[in-house]
């Protein structure tokens, strides 16, 4: 009797399962509970991404280390003519800050770097005189930069940046150590021929204060013998920037202490000359 009952129950279940499978997708559109669950689950990730990655970071996105904390601005409504005037003012203020920083550094006794991204130019200046100007062939700037308002950006840019550390695929100072010969015979044996020019690919990272990283790289692909040098350079870069880990970005997408990287591609000669010319304690004037 039990056996008979079990068999009939199994059959019942099979038929029920078949019915369920058959009705599953139909239920999405006919059963309001199933439809509600489906819509809610469908919206979970897009809403999460929108709030977490869009609303939160843009609610108060500003570059790190705002210099002038007192700079507060209240948004006002404007007509089109006023908007155009304000856009002109923003351009003028950028120009004023840039030129003022150049003037400030010109009064110091140092070699400094001037980068004008809109004009695609990078130059080395000494006391206000441009001693070398190079064309920036390509700019790859941090995607966060367009998010900053002019108010925050101008506070960040209006004072020159100070170089803190640097790394590159070539030595900054190519020192060759030579032991003094004991006598004239040994001196004659020592080669007086200059070393052949260093043609290693130039990739450099300059780490400034206020979380600015300026990469100045040459515009050419590496040859095979340069790959280990580039690997070592990249390993150093990672070690220098622990805060750029994806995890940290995910944990705090609106954080203001994340480095902002601007990559400038210039010719090989310019990249080499700029990297070698700038002192280890130099300053940078940047216009974006």
């Amino acid at each position: 009797m039990n056996k008979i009952n079990n068999t009939s129950t199994d059959k019942k279940n099979e038929s029920m399962n078949g019915k369920k499978r058959k009705n599953f997708f139909v239920g999405l559109f006919t059963n309001w509970k199933q439809l509600l669950v489906f819509i809610l689950s469908l919206l979970i990730f897009p809403v999460l991404v929108f709030v977490y990655a869009t609303i939160l970071p843009t609610s108060d996105y500003k570059p790190a280390a705002e210099i002038n904390g007192s700079k507060t601005a209240v948004a006002v409504s404007l007509d089109n003519a006023q908007k155009e005037d304000i856009i002109k003012i923003i351009g003028l203020e950028k120009e004023r800050d840039f030129e003022q920083s150049r003037l400030d550094l010109a009064n110091q006794d140092s070699i400094y770097l001037v980068v004008n991204v809109p004009a695609h130019s990078i130059s080395i200046e000494i006391k206000g005189v441009q001693v070398r100007t190079a064309s920036i062939l390509r700019v790859e700037s941090d995607q966060k930069i367009p998010l900053f308002s002019h108010e925050h950006l101008s506070a960040w840019l209006s004072v020159p940046f100070s170089l803190k550390k640097y790394i590159g695929t070539i030595p900054k100072i190519p020192i060759v150590i030579k032991e003094a010969p004991k006598d004239t015979i040994e001196a004659q044996k020592l080669s007086s021929k200059p070393l052949p020019p260093d043609s290693t690919i130039v990739l450099t990272s300059l780490y400034f204060d206020r979380n600015l990283v300026l990469e100045i790289n040459q515009d050419s692909k590496p040859v095979e013998r340069e790959l280990p040098i580039i690997e070592a350079y990249n390993a150093k870069k990672i070690a220098y920037l622990p805060e750029t880990t994806t995890l940290k970005k995910l944990l705090n997408p609106g954080a203001t202490d994340q480095p902002l990287t601007i990559k400038l591609i210039v010719s090989a000669a310019d990249a080499r000359a700029i990297y070698r010319a700038i002192p280890s304690k130099t300053s940078l004037v940047l216009k974006l």
């Binding site: 507060t72 948004a75 308002s149 002019h150």
Partner: peptide, 8 residues
């Protein structure tokens, strides 16, 4: 950005 600058 524009209205913030105008506000200042």
């Amino acid at each position: 950005t524009v209205s913030m600058t105008a506000g200042r």
